[in-house]
């Protein structure tokens, strides 16, 4: 049987499936279904230096094959994450990735320092959140700002640093190169695409924030294309995400160039999706005569 384990920046994952930030909280709710070691890792709900209330509801809208969200980084703050959630999470035999977001470069640096002395395995820098007024995606849309923030955080971060990229940019491969050049240990992509839905009876947007971040099966082809482009642009590991909902999607994203995967929206419909995807992927690797996930990564044969 094929080995589903993967290694990202020296961290060994049980399998390539990481729960995507914002869809899995800090893991407790999903541990009711299965032991969290069924996952390769958990990218925790995005945390900020200070606690955040988040945006007013409604915070979710549905589209054909996708959803929009505008949660706005509701979270208890980095200190409470470290004291209240991390002790439990770090005992679940799965890699723990802290996802950090901030208003300023200094916010990110301070959080990276605090987390460097904690039990987290990796830090994912969220410079692509479309739902907050300050910071968030603003850091992630130009090569210069991505380079600057990556350099600053890298200097003060002792954990492997993943930079999470926004798809709402002109050339995501250029952005990835900037992150790599300034010391990112890996990149993850794609964060959500900015979108909107409107109630035609009232003329009001469904989301109180008017716009939100789109995820789910509808964004999958965009994500596959971007993962392929980024893989061709950088040497550091690429964590692929965006609408993966079946083992076939997972295989496709790996073939496109992903070294590991994140899954999110599918969990809302099927909390057991990670188990099913792992089983399907394992059978697929066996059928193809491959001994590990790494043997499938970036095996795309472009025309």
């Amino acid at each position: 049987m094929a080995d589903l384990g993967v290694s990202i920046c020296g961290v060994r994952l049980n399998n390539p499936l990481i729960a995507a930030s914002g869809t899995f909280g800090f893991g407790r709710e999903y541990s009711e279904f299965y032991p969290l070691e069924a996952l390769g890792g958990i990218s925790c709900k995005g945390i900020t230096l200070q606690p955040r209330l988040g945006n007013p509801p409604p915070r979710i809208a549905e589209g054909k094959n996708g959803i929009l969200n505008s949660v706005g980084l509701q979270n208890p703050g980095v200190d409470r994450f470290i004291s209240e959630d991390l002790p439990w999470l770090s005992e679940q035999n799965t890699a723990v990735i802290a996802n950090i977001a901030g208003n300023t470069v200094e916010d990110y640096c301070q959080m990276a320092e605090k987390l460097s002395d904690s039990a987290v395995d990796m830090i994912e820098m969220n410079i692509s959140c479309p739902n907050v007024k300050h910071g968030g995606v603003a850091f992630g849309t130009s090569c210069e700002s991505v380079g600057n923030i990556t350099r600053a955080v890298r200097e003060r971060c002792k954990k492997p640093l993943i930079v999470k990229l926004s798809p709402n940019v002109a050339d995501i491969a250029d952005i990835a190169r900037s992150a790599e050049a300034e010391g990112a240990d890996a990149v993850s992509l794609i964060n959500t695409l900015t979108g909107m839905r409107i109630d035609i009876e009232t003329g009001r947007p469904i989301l109180k924030n008017n716009t939100g971040g789109m995820s789910g099966p509808a964004v999958f082809p965009v994500a596959v294309r971007m993962v392929w482009q980024v893989k061709n642009a950088v040497k550091i590991p690429v964590i692929g995400m965006g609408g993966i909902s079946t083992w076939q999607d997972a295989a496709e994203m790996l073939i496109a160039g992903a070294d590991a995967l994140q899954i999110g929206t599918v969990l809302f419909n099927d909390p057991y999706a990670p188990i099913k995807i792992c089983r399907g992927l394992s059978d697929f690797l066996d059928r193809k005569g491959l001994k590990s996930v790494a043997e499938l990564t970036a095996t795309i044969k472009p025309w």
Binding site: T23, K45, G54, I60, F268
Partner: peptide, 15 residues
């Protein structure tokens, strides 16, 4: 409220 996960992980159904 409009809901996502239903179990308290995704934080969308805010009150």
């Amino acid at each position: 409220e409009r809901m996502g996960c239903g179990i308290g992980a995704c934080l969308v159904c805010a009150c």
